Simulated assay, not measured.
Amino acid sequence: MANAKKEQATTEDAVLLMFLSLAENDGIEMNVTLNVQGTLVSGVLIGSRAYYDGITESAHDLRDDTMSRIIGKRFEDLKDEYVKQKQEQGDKKEDEQEPPAYIHLRNAKYQHTQPAHPAWWRGKVSSVDAFSFDSLI
């Protein structure tokens, strides 16, 4: 992951960036509905750490034990890398830190569909066309 190309958020929406920062840095969670290229997605806005923890826990529910261990380990590694990057950024002032490139939702659902179980969702911040702080779906 260290060699991975770093993606940057390409939104200038100060309100969205503020709430992403609250989720990332302060653990704030809130209901949100996003319009992503014409598709509505609702869920609970969460930070990256909560997303990685949730995916890791969800891996334990997989029927295939080998796949469960592999996915759990890979997401644990991703979370460790994320924590390391956050610690390195911690020395920078908040206005010098890069905004998150991804937005994460827990219990995500799409317009006109109902997931059979809570869905974890990750999307590019740059793909969000509009948002509402409520669950509209």
Score class of each variant (00 low, 15 high):
76 E>M: 11
72 G>C: 06
2 A>S: 13
10 T>Y: 05
24 E>V: 01
47 G>R: 00
137 I>N: 10
28 I>P: 04
116 A>F: 11
130 A>V: 05
98 E>Q: 14
77 D>H: 13
88 E>S: 07
68 S>T: 12
49 R>P: 01
27 G>S: 08
50 A>T: 09
4 A>S: 13
5 K>S: 05
134 D>A: 15
46 I>Y: 01
1 M>K: 08
67 M>D: 04
127 S>M: 14
111 Q>T: 02
132 S>Y: 09
30 M>C: 12
20 L>T: 05
35 N>Y: 04
124 K>M: 09
56 T>H: 05
34 L>N: 00
114 Q>C: 12
31 N>Y: 13
135 S>V: 07
115 P>I: 06
136 L>F: 11
29 E>N: 08
91 D>M: 03
49 R>N: 10
7 E>A: 07
26 D>T: 11
85 Q>L: 06
69 R>M: 09
32 V>A: 03
41 V>A: 00
85 Q>F: 04
76 E>P: 00
129 D>I: 04
136 L>K: 15
40 L>Q: 10
43 G>F: 00
27 G>T: 04
5 K>T: 10
91 D>R: 06
137 I>Q: 06
13 D>G: 02
24 E>L: 09
113 T>S: 13
51 Y>I: 00
6 K>N: 03
50 A>N: 05
12 E>H: 10
49 R>L: 04
71 I>N: 06
117 H>W: 10
72 G>K: 03
90 G>T: 06
78 L>R: 09
38 G>L: 02
22 L>R: 06
9 A>S: 13
57 E>D: 14
76 E>W: 14
88 E>M: 07
133 F>D: 01
54 G>P: 03
74 R>P: 01
52 Y>F: 15
56 T>V: 03
114 Q>V: 15
72 G>Q: 10
110 Y>M: 11
136 L>H: 12
122 R>G: 04
122 R>K: 13
62 L>R: 08
44 V>M: 12
8 Q>N: 09
47 G>M: 00
10 T>A: 13
109 K>Q: 10
57 E>T: 05
